[in-house]
């Protein structure tokens, strides 16, 4: 419990993870694919899990997906292209 008393621990963990992520960026640059080249299915699989479990396309009607799409574009600050592709995929 002693170590937990160190309030710097949280900042430290966050910093370590931030640096870790930067290193991952450098490593992954070569394999990266531009968002504009990705399919709706891929963007759906990659983005929704950032905050909660990924809903399946059968959860809603196309009309409802359009509404949820706009809502999540705001929550997740998706780009317009991402949102359009994801909604199109979910509405199929």
């Amino acid at each position: 419990m002693k170590i937990l008393n160190n309030k710097k621990l949280t900042i430290l963990s966050i910093l370590v993870l931030m640096i870790g992520s930067m290193m991952l960026v450098l490593n992954s640059c070569t394999a990266s694919q531009k968002i504009s080249m990705k399919s709706g299915a891929q963007l759906w699989a990659e983005n929704c899990q950032r905050c909660h479990n990924t809903p399946s396309p059968s959860t809603f009607t196309p009309e409802q997906w359009e509404t949820v799409g706009m809502h999540m574009q705001s929550r997740a600050l998706l780009t317009e292209t991402e949102k359009n592709k994801i909604v199109e995929f979910l509405s199929q």
């Binding site: 640059c29 531009k34 600050l77």
Partner: peptide
């Protein structure tokens, strides 16, 4: 005012 912006393989957002 908020939005998401693509920059190559990375993304930025502002709010």
């Amino acid at each position: 005012a908020e939005g998401g912006i693509q920059a190559g393989t990375t993304k930025w957002s502002y709010d």
